[in-house]
Design a binder for these strands. Structure first.
Lengths: 222, 222
DNA sequence: GTCTATAGATGGATAGAC
DNA sequence: GTCTATCCATCTATAGAC
């Protein structure tokens, strides 16, 4: 967009050797812009301009635009999965190896919701992850489809917590719960806000978590 | 858009006058390719090649790529909303103006699910609509956010069906139900299939509808 | 390591023949 | 109305100066 071809730079006598800072700036700018505007709608130029670094930085530090986005994706999903696994582990310990449905669902819901707290830096990461589910590259979608080991632990826990429930039904209900989580996008919140004429405030994350747990727990025990 | 009345009718001896067929072919090819591969990943060249028409057809018949996709979006969402409204109306008639939660939710869930029946032509339309929620143009998203009149009727019906429930809670639970619907994408079905080791078959739509209703009804009445 | 300049590829749109 | 050929904008990636 902006081009200042003529007088580029005065004598660049003191260079900024801060490689890590440049890489981090690119990483954060890319995550934010992609989360806000979509993967295909953000160019490498947009990212480097926003980060205040030169155009070649993306390729130098990450190899390519796709590789950059895949690295963001891998890091964020790994963090999310780790936090969910930790909470599930704690719930298992609290209940002698057999946590109830509500505690399992809390381990599934709470991490992405707590990240979404208004003042939280990771708020944007949640939107990035949700977006990559539908807009990601083939590589991302393949990783999502194949790496279900993390979800399998939740499925196993839910099946154990619902002895009378057919396995198949438990899987479907887990699928429904994930749908509830993935629908927490900015655009959907906005739409709900319009529909309810302002009665729904997504800023109160703990209240939203309780609402989701009430709904999903009842659905699971139906 | 259409104006060719004036300089009418040179001898149309050799030409293919099948305007409607060309336009329909473009429409269907675009809908299918976008539903399968995403909006930004499909070029006008892909669409016209798939439809077997020439490259200029899209601009001639629809004005632009964006206008074409917006027209698909408008037609399909209108059809879906009409079908949902009809079912809600029928449920209201059946129950003297006060349909129960399950019947309201069935009017919300059944149309997109029945479209998704394997042999149904509209199967692809559902995927298109779901995708346009997150990948659509600014114009589409604005239309989605602002046109909530169709959803308002569902919200009103649900509020009436749950006298003790705070309005705010009803709106949130409707939001959760919509999340369940929007999660019915091919990629998510595939993931669930892997997770459950083949135990979940999304082909049986009526069974899936019953599962969704069981879950959502219990959640709504919690 | 950082930056500029540019190569190389692609895609949306359109002019003009028929 | 249909089609080909082409224009022009934009993007990713990279070569090479410093």
């Amino acid at each position: 967009m902006k081009d200042s071809p003529v007088d580029a730079a005065p004598a660049n006598d003191l260079q900024e050797p801060n490689e890590a800072a440049t890489k981090a700036a690119v990483f954060c700018a890319a995550e934010r812009l992609f989360a806000l505007h979509g993967f295909q709608n953000v160019s490498v130029r947009d990212i480097t301009a926003d980060a205040g670094v030169n155009l070649a930085s993306v390729n130098y530090h990450f190899g390519s635009k796709d590789a950059l986005l895949f690295e963001i994706f891998r890091r964020r999903t790994a963090e999310l999965n780790r936090e969910r696994a930790r909470m599930l582990h704690e719930a298992t310990d609290r209940h002698q190896g057999k946590p109830p449905v509500r505690d399992i669902l809390e381990a599934l819901f709470a991490p992405p919701l707590r990240w979404a707290t208004p003042e939280n830096d990771r708020r944007i990461s949640v939107q990035f992850i949700i977006r990559s589910r539908s807009e990601g590259t083939e590589e991302m979608r393949e990783a999502l489809t194949k790496d279900v080991s993390h979800l399998a632990r939740f499925a196993d826990a839910l099946i154990a917590a619902c002895p009378g429930l057919p396995r198949e039904t438990a899987y479907w209900r887990l699928h429904f719960c994930l749908g509830m989580v993935h629908n927490n996008r900015f655009a959907e919140f906005d739409r709900l806000h319009v529909l309810s004429d302002g009665a729904t405030r997504e800023g109160d994350i703990e209240a939203l978590l309780k609402r989701m747990l009430d709904f999903a727990e009842a659905g699971f025990l139906a």
